[in-house]
């Protein structure tokens, strides 16, 4: 039963509070999901520990070619950030497609990762960016690649009753690198994706230096199309190769039947279209 609500003013204070409550307090940021989960009794906690007033967590910064997004930064702030729009445009696109403006104004990008939903738009883009999550706890700070953040559907490596995901960071895109975020949804807003795909692609002259392709929801977590990536690496890219890569990507995915958002069969076939479109778009922006 929820008994207390604490507005932390610093990371240290939050950590002390977690310790005091010994597993009975839970970190929240925007709280958009937490309030609903609490009233639906999906989660129980004695204390909500709100970090949205922690100034140091509200920054989007560029440091040594890395972009760092604090845990209290909202989707709207990311979408409207000039830094993100120029150095990670796919993330701006992804954050901009979450729910509705009101949701984007409160829900956070880091929360999107910590919630560990398999099709969270920003998380999919962040995985393509090779993002790393900074986790702070009493024992110190650790850095976990986003791909290792998922323990299962809705289950994150970060235990919000003991630890805190303080920020997420990724390399800013460089000239010669392109990106794309594409999404198939049943309507223009307020809709979870039937599928979303993020691509970051680095060209060296005409060849693909490396590429990251992330697809969702086709597995319990956003899924890298590693085989397709391998297939493209080092190749001189063209439409034919892209089409083949998309087919390979599909063979790596295992989308499920969703009574709400499309059959597995449809999702598989659409995945090919989306991966192809994302690669083409990423290539265009890379050139």
């Amino acid at each position: 039963m929820l008994k207390d609500y604490i507005l932390a003013t610093s990371i240290e204070e939050a950590l002390v509070c977690l310790k005091t409550y010994a597993g009975q307090a839970r970190i929240i940021a925007g709280g958009t999901d937490a309030m609903l989960d609490l009233s639906a009794k999906k989660i129980t906690t004695s204390c909500l520990l709100d970090i949205t007033k922690v100034k140091e967590l509200k920054k989007i910064e560029s440091m040594d070619g890395q972009i760092v997004i604090g845990a209290a930064v909202t989707h709207s702030e990311v979408k409207n950030s000039d830094l993100i729009r120029t150095k990670a445009p796919l993330l701006a696109e992804a954050s901009g497609s979450v729910g509705s403006l009101q949701i984007r104004n409160t829900a956070t990008v880091v929360g999107n990762v910590v919630n560990a939903q398999p099709a969270a738009d920003a998380a999919v883009a962040l995985m393509a960016l090779g993002a790393v999550v900074e986790i702070t706890e009493d024992a110190g700070t650790s850095y976990v690649p986003i791909e290792e953040m998922y323990l299962g559907v809705g289950k994150s490596k970060v235990d919000s009753t003991k630890q805190m995901a303080t920020s997420i960071r990724f390399p800013a895109l460089l000239p010669g690198q392109g990106s794309a975020f594409v999404r198939l949804a049943q309507r223009g807003a307020l809709a979870l994706p039937m599928l979303n795909v993020a691509v970051v692609l680095s060209l060296c002259e005409d060849k693909v230096e490396w590429v990251r392709i992330v697809m969702a929801p086709v597995a319990p977590k956003p899924l890298r199309a590693l085989e397709a990536e391998k297939y493209l690496q080092g190749a001189v890219i063209n439409d034919e190769l892209i089409a083949k890569a998309a087919k390979i990507a599909v063979s790596e995915a295992t989308p499920r039947d969703s009574a709400l958002r499309g059959s597995a069969e449809y999702r598989k076939e659409m995945l090919e279209v989306l991966v192809r479109r994302a690669l083409q778009q990423a290539l265009t922006t890379a050139r």
Binding site: Y5, I28, T32, A34, L48, T106
Partner: peptide, 15 residues
């Protein structure tokens, strides 16, 4: 200054 859904904003967040 920003629009929010007041039905899912924790009241305390308005502090």
């Amino acid at each position: 200054g920003q629009s929010v859904n007041s039905c899912i904003v924790p009241a305390m967040q308005a502090m």
